[in-house]
Computed example of a mutant assay.
Amino acid sequence: MADDSTPIARWRARMGLSQRAAAEALGMSLSAYQEQERGASFAGAPREASRVLLLACAALEAGLSPIGASE
């Protein structure tokens, strides 16, 4: 069962993406994405999602493409 306690986890659930697909959509490695979704590093240190990452999630949810991406 997915942990939906972080904004990133809730975003992925709304989008219906796997962690790997979410990481790819955001241009991140899977391990970096997993840390963001958990809200903690693999070492256990708290990790808060950056405003840039949250805005990227919102843009993807709105159907926007990255600036300069060919359509």
Score class of each variant (00 low, 15 high):
36 Q>V: 04
8 I>L: 09
41 S>I: 01
53 L>G: 03
52 V>E: 15
5 S>R: 08
27 G>K: 03
24 E>Y: 12
60 L>V: 11
66 P>A: 13
43 A>K: 12
12 R>M: 02
26 L>K: 00
46 P>K: 09
17 L>E: 01
26 L>W: 01
41 S>M: 14
29 S>V: 01
35 E>Q: 15
59 A>W: 10
27 G>M: 03
24 E>D: 15
64 L>W: 13
13 A>D: 01
14 R>L: 01
65 S>R: 15
15 M>P: 00
68 G>P: 03
41 S>Y: 14
52 V>K: 11
67 I>D: 15
22 A>V: 07
55 L>E: 15
65 S>E: 15
17 L>G: 00
6 T>V: 04
26 L>T: 01
5 S>K: 05
51 R>V: 11
60 L>A: 08
10 R>Q: 07
21 A>T: 10
56 A>C: 10
48 E>R: 15
34 Q>H: 07
49 A>N: 06
2 A>R: 14
43 A>V: 07
33 Y>P: 03
48 E>F: 12
53 L>Y: 08
32 A>Y: 12
36 Q>Y: 14
58 A>H: 11
52 V>H: 12
14 R>Y: 03
3 D>W: 07
20 R>P: 06
14 R>P: 00
58 A>F: 10
33 Y>E: 04
50 S>D: 06
34 Q>L: 07
38 R>N: 09
40 A>F: 02
41 S>L: 14
50 S>L: 02
36 Q>K: 08
25 A>F: 03
9 A>G: 09
9 A>E: 00
67 I>K: 14
52 V>F: 12
5 S>I: 00
30 L>K: 05
19 Q>G: 12
37 E>C: 01
9 A>K: 02
35 E>R: 06
4 D>E: 12
5 S>D: 05
4 D>Q: 10
61 E>R: 02
2 A>W: 13
19 Q>T: 08
66 P>I: 00
7 P>H: 05
16 G>N: 06
69 A>K: 11
48 E>W: 12
13 A>W: 03
46 P>L: 07
58 A>L: 13
27 G>L: 02
22 A>H: 04
50 S>C: 02
24 E>R: 13
44 G>N: 08
60 L>G: 04
